[in-house]
Design a protein around this nucleic acid. Structure first.
Lengths: 232, 232
DNA sequence: TTTTTTATGATAGTATCGCTATCATTTTAA
DNA sequence: TTAAAATGATAGCGATACTATCATAAAAAA
């Protein structure tokens, strides 16, 4: 009865993250991908504090010991996830601004990319970008707000974020070469985005915007307004 | 040979914090004050994650059980400390802006108050304001970045911060009634202050300012610049 | 003062956490 | 087919985050 030919094509995005962040690259194996996938789900659902490798192991039908073969501890795993997110945002920015020459338009696209990233994108099978975004919002700063910052920073654990900040600061300087705080504005846009999406959801009296479900348009509008006012 | 008369005068500042934050008011007893004093020192020195009631108990020559009679757990203690800080900043702002009518000047004073608060002030005997400021910078956001935010917020655990944000937003609206984001700007000034002082110390490539020891003048200048640009 | 209440100290105990070690088994590569 | 690498199973250990109980000390009320 003839042939059926199945062609399985998979285009995979794969980010090269700092090698100190894992003992064995989780992107290389089924178990590794499972760890990433379900750690995102668990941290998003229960929060980073009550997340443990034991619970994760149970959830994916593996063992604590196996997970420790990939990540030194849950703190390093968090840094890994956050880096993954910023690499992904960098990637989005890169492809979305590829043929754009006007720096002002570029900045708009950049803001859109990190505020609404998960909304627009298909992404990677084993990463729920929307939940990862929530983790970055709610837990992201815990990656560097520890007594190990200096040591971890010297190992390059925060380079994804720093590179992105650098890229954005260049766009800012292109818009207004006189502006004295291009790095601060760049990082402030990121932090402000995270903070105010969180505030809108949990501490609404600390912000003026509101967020309905996944609709973060007001955040985007506000960030554009701030950037415009500061740069023009 | 006659008399010596000792007059012991102590003017005490005492903030009334949300009663849900403690089981017994630590401001009422020697042990309570000891807990506050040395928890600040320990958290500042070793970070919130590795801070435990057991270590604190050892340090003050007491026991774990006794500390648990004051605070439910270390997380609530952190919220207490952060609230104390914001109450203190509110107090500083209130007395420093008392006879100031110009809203622009007020905002400058406000910014100076929370950026440089510990530098200017004598304060309360058992609170090292400078170290408490460091804690707010490095650990402050962990007070609300947890899965218990909503519940704790409904109990009023973050009201000190919200009240302050409210006060500042009114000054902002006084300066420019057209400005659409008075609350967001208010909180952003606080967060930006904390973030960039931290960045200057630990992740300098994320900011443009530098901080030398306790000299945070560049942070203050930057915040004033941002506020001016946004409001005028 | 004496009594009663309240605050603190001393000690023990329990479940979970964070992590390491060892050995068996399965999967993959040579 | 054999060797190597990856995973699973299990145990264990010290620390954490509490809770409970009882004794003692300090403060307040009688």
């Amino acid at each position: 009865m003839g042939y059926r030919i199945y062609i399985k094509m998979s285009i995979q995005i794969r980010f090269s993250l700092n090698e100190g962040l894992y003992l064995k690259d989780p992107q290389d194996s089924k178990l590794g991908k499972n760890i990433i996938q379900h750690s995102i789900l668990l941290i998003d659902e229960f929060g980073f504090e009550s997340f443990t490798f034991k619970k994760l192991a149970e959830k994916i039908g593996s063992t604590e010991a196996s997970i420790y073969r990939y990540f030194e501890n849950k703190h390093i795993l968090l840094i890994f996830l956050v880096n993954w997110y910023w690499e992904w945002v960098s990637y989005l920015i890169q492809i979305n601004t590829m043929n754009v020459s006007d720096a002002r338009v570029k900045l708009k696209i950049i803001i859109h990319s990190f505020v609404s990233a998960p909304k627009d994108n298909p992404g990677v099978e084993y990463v729920n970008e929307s939940k990862l975004h929530n983790i970055v919002i709610s837990e992201g700063v815990k990656a560097y707000l520890t007594k190990d910052v200096d040591e971890e920073n010297s190992k390059g654990f925060f380079s994804s974020y720093k590179n992105l900040a650098n890229t954005v600061s260049h766009v800012i300087s292109e818009i207004n070469p006189e502006f004295k705080y291009p790095y601060a504005l760049a990082t402030n846009l990121f932090e402000m985005s995270n903070n105010h999406i969180y505030f809108a959801k949990h501490l609404p009296r600390l912000t003026d915007i509101s967020v309905n479900g996944n609709n973060v348009d007001e955040a985007e509008t506000m960030l554009n307004y701030f950037a415009d006012k500061l740069l023009f």
